[in-house]
Amino acid sequence: METQPHSDATQREGGTIYHLRNVVLDRKSEGVSFRLNVPSLQIRQGEQIAVIGESGCGKSTLLDILAFIAKPSDIDSFRFRPNLADSPTDIGALWDKKQLNALGDMRKQHIGYVMQTGGLLPYLTVRDNINLSRNVLKMKKDDTVDTLARELGIARHLDKLPGTLSTGERQRVAIARGLAHQPSIVIADEPTASVDPFAAEKIMALFMELAEDRNITVIVASHAWRHIKRLGLRRLAHHTSRSEDGRTTETVVNG
């Protein structure tokens, strides 16, 4: 805890989960270079953020940075404060010291992840899949999984293997897994991309509702703003520019 409260800073950071300043990630492949530049980004607790853009614009990279999966090339300041009761963690310092396991622990404790294609383990039942994170965290058994399953309409599938479910149902299981260990943040990368638009809208609405009920911060990447707009998410402003020869792409994210 800070001994000397800076009224200004505390005010600004009060309720802020993510605080990023001048975080840059450079990537080069086959002579084409890509740069994601985040001059300033604050995400407050309980916020629902949408990162909208075509593929290749860097939204997945941004999510990877926020999930401590991708290492930024340059960090001025990257602070993470999942519990407002605790002082913020200096993610930049952990990357500098290559403390990958510490980052991993932080991720498994505070972040839920919903993957594009579900990412369910085919050999585990739906129940075990949803329980995976809880299991790793050694959380006590309670009715969390059943409640989530009921709310997502997949209760009758709990003892089946994912292979027997439809894509939409699998996506609901993935959402349940992302939420089951009561993380502070859920990151979802195109969670409904593989589902038909009608179902997608329904699933997304359900997802937002569940997250809101639990006061979970949500960061969603999607290429379709249309059906997300209605759910009241805050759209992260970003601007993508390409050099004339098309070899350099830079995306600047602010928010």
Partner: peptide, 11 residues
């Protein structure tokens, strides 16, 4: 599948 395990915290 292995990356999912990594994601949920398997070291």
């Amino acid at each position: 599948e292995l990356s999912v395990l990594r994601l949920v915290g398997f070291r």
